[in-house]
Design a protein around this nucleic acid. Sequence first.
DNA 1: TTTATTCACCACATGTATGTGTTAATTGAT
DNA 2: ATCAATTAACACATACATGTGGTGAATAAA
Lengths: 79, 79
Amino acid sequence: MRRKYTKEDYEFLRKLGHRIRELREQTDLSQAALEIDSKMSKNQIGRIERGEISTSVANLNLMAKALQVDIQSFFDFEE
Amino acid sequence: MRRKYTKEDYEFLRKLGHRIRELREQTDLSQAALEIDSKMSKNQIGRIERGEISTSVANLNLMAKALQVDIQSFFDFEE
DNA sequence: TTTATTCACCACATGTATGTGTTAATTGAT
DNA sequence: ATCAATTAACACATACATGTGGTGAATAAA
């Protein structure tokens, strides 16, 4: 049986999602455009940006390459 | 239907896993000890370190806190 | 040799992330 | 107000990650 996400987990996911959205908007890409570049579904991208789910590191890598940013920049938020 | 992992994906996961193992050993923690601190199963930790699977960012956060390292340091390897 | 530690590896059940398809809702421009 | 672009939000099937429990291999110590 899996661990359940705590409030801290969701707080982390919320901040991460907000940061990803920030970087996507700085690149002037819509979710639909990022879908094409990253090969991820735009639905999934939306869920990640809203902090609803905990995506995998392989997907983080895909998004970083699509946005042409360093994967570490996704974690550039306070705390 | 999900995307399948490419060779680049697995290469990324392999490097990431190696880096995580490196940081764990620097902290002098066994997989069993990290299991306790991170609340993740040691089986899963082993699979991640071997690069077999793509774990979630929430788990990365758990491991970073348990190892008392910055989550960004997980990605400090030559790409 | 024996014992203990650490890790690799396996099978299985289950929860979750993902993609697809669809329909609202929102935003912006005119 | 209308129109277009963008995003939110839903349901569903399925692939994958995760935990549990177990066995075995490798290493070191004694």
